[in-house]
Design a protein around this nucleic acid. Structure first.
Length: 506
RNA sequence: GUCCCCAUCGUCCAGAGGCCCAGGACGUGGCCCUUUCAAGGCCAAAACACGGGUUCGAAUCCCGUUGGGGACGCCA
């Protein structure tokens, strides 16, 4: 089995395309097949190297490694259409010679006028066949005289073209609705429907899995396969991914490119798992009916994936469910993996200046208290701001902190804290011991005790469990200056300065 | 306009004629847990687009309607 993903480098990798890539990858990996990456850059105006590079980067980040492609090579290269032009020319000449194709000299203006006329008359807009009768000799004369020509495929009239779609079944189109399409443009570059056929055939692609937007191109391609006596691959067309309003997913709906999801702090594991579940679900486990099998790693998805189980209808992209999955993966993936992926967000906030072993270890140790309670990696440093941005003075001015301070007994707790802190609290026990001393001294307990403690030590009224947060503060404060992290003030200092700020006027 | 595809809770899926007064997940609501915000646990509300057939029996098969999507380029 050989499958391929063939993006055109005209922009960022879109989640819809990422899903198409994923389905191809899953099929290949699940069947010991080969996953090919081919760059369809025949549109010289819109294709850019920047886009190509970013698409490759995104695919790698997603974990969709390819076996053959522009950068890794392979036996059927080159894998960039712009480097295969001689092949298209040669096959086009073959079709021209055999009468399957002809030169067309119609101007874009005339084509446009014809199209409008068809539409107005309620006919399917298709090429009128004006140049069908131009013979080879006349064509040569006109080209020598400087006229520009495209090469068109001569579509036979009144016949049905059928193909078996692996997800949809038998699909039939009548050629009466298909105009003579362009094979080679006037500048010599191939047109999509021609280039794909040559490439898929030469690259020995066995299964073409692509978006449903290509289904009406398929009969054209079948025609080319036949004319060239290539045997066509198996086709499978995937229903499209839509926005909440059932229009094609676009920027209007928020993030749509893989890069945007990465920038917002989604894990590739979550994005892939989520995308796999739009339009497909793993066979329900016969031995365990009613069990939910949604959270599956890539290798397990690949093991279970089958085209027969792919749905026929378009699915709506649901950011809420993606967020839920992301939460799951932030909690369940190895902390080192999550920390590595989250590091850039600490850097962006200025909390991480240089990645060192000590910084990595510290960040990793923070994850249990933060990763389970937010949706995205980007929110992790936010939730840990109390570590790196503590300021007693500023905190005491905040309304919510002020409210806590006003609670009965709160000031006593705050006043008692500096003395109760015996030394660095590096574990849960030493923190609890400190809290016990304050309780003894003030008689406060429960919320009345812990709310002021939290306010004093973190400058906030909510946040991670104090059992975890307090030791994290003092462990962070003990880090050497060259650890690469922003300075963290210790609890003893915090308690003193907070008490000073709050009790000053008393 | 013409052709093609599609149609189960708000959303993603399960359901391949009786197991379905339709099952799971996300989200929503409630309750519980709790030194905070979250998280987590439990419970609940919530759907077979409509109309005809076929059949002893239809969410499942057929036809039509409606609705949605795609395509009709010297874009891919």
């Amino acid at each position: 089995m050989r499958v391929r993903f063939a993006p055109s480098p005209t922009g960022q990798l879109h989640v819809g395309n990422a899903r198409t890539a994923l389905f191809n990858w899953l099929l290949a990996r699940g069947h010991g097949g080969t996953f090919i990456l081919r760059i369809e850059d025949t549109d010289a105006e819109r294709s850019t190297k920047v886009s190509e590079d970013s698409i490759l980067e995104d695919l790698r980040w997603l974990g969709l490694e390819w076996d053959e492609g522009p950068d890794v090579g392979g036996g059927c290269g080159p894998y960039r259409q712009s480097e295969r032009l001689h092949l298209y020319t040669s096959y086009a000449n073959e079709l021209l010679g055999a009468g399957y194709a002809y030169y067309c000299f119609c101007s874009p203006q005339k084509l446009d006028a014809d199209r409008k006329q068809d539409l107005a008359a309620g006919r399917p807009p298709r090429y009128h066949g004006t140049c069908r009768s131009v013979g080879p000799d006349e064509a040569r004369r006109r080209m020598e005289a400087g006229e520009r020509a495209v090469v068109r495929f001569r579509v036979p009239d009144h016949i049905d073209i059928s193909f078996h779609d692996l997800v949809r079944g038998e699909v039939t189109f009548n050629t009466d609705n298909i105009g003579d399409f362009v094979l080679i443009r006037s500048d010599g570059r191939p047109q999509y429907n021609f280039a794909v056929v040559i490439d898929d055939a030469l690259m020995e692609v066995t299964h073409v899995i692509r978006g449903e937007d290509h289904i009406s191109n398929t009969p054209k391609q079948v025609l080319v396969y036949r004319a060239l006596t290539f045997s066509p691959p198996r086709f499978a067309h995937l229903a499209l991914v839509m926005g909440p309003d059932h229009t094609p997913l676009s920027k209007r709906h928020g993030a749509t490119s893989v890069a945007e999801f990465r920038d917002r702090g989604y894990l590739p594991e979550a994005l892939m798992n989520y995308l796999a579940l739009i339009g497909w679900s793993p066979r329900s486990d016969a031995a365990n009916p009613g069990s939910s099998d949604e959270l599956l790693p890539m290798d397990e998805l690949a093991r279970r994936f089958a085209l027969e189980d792919v749905g026929h209808s378009a699915g709506v992209f649901d950011p809420e469910k993606l967020a839920w999955m992301n939460r799951h993966y932030m909690k369940s993936l190895p902390p080192s993996r999550v920390a590595a992926e989250a590091a850039r967000f600490f850097t962006a906030r200025g909390y991480l200046r240089k990645m060192t072993d000590a910084a990595a270890a510290y960040l990793e140790s923070l994850l249990p208290m933060a990763a389970g309670s937010v949706d995205r990696l980007e929110e992790i440093p936010e939730r840990l701001a109390f570590l790196f941005e503590y300021d007693a003075e500023a905190a005491s001015e905040k309304a919510d902190v002020g409210a806590v301070v006003q609670e009965p007994g709160a000031r006593d707790v705050i006043a008692a804290m500096p003395d109760a802190i015996a030394g660095a609290m590096l574990d849960r026990e030493s923190f609890r011991a400190m809290a016990a001393r304050v309780r003894e001294k003030t008689g406060q307990k429960g919320k009345a005790l812990f709310h002021p403690i939290r306010a004093a030590l973190t400058g906030e009224v909510g946040g991670p469990e104090l059992d975890l947060a307090v030791p994290a503060i003092d462990r962070g404060a003990g880090l050497p200056g060259d650890a690469g992290l922003a300075r963290i003030q210790d609890c003893a200092f915090r308690a003193r300065s907070f008490a000073a700020a709050v009790l000053r006027g008393r």
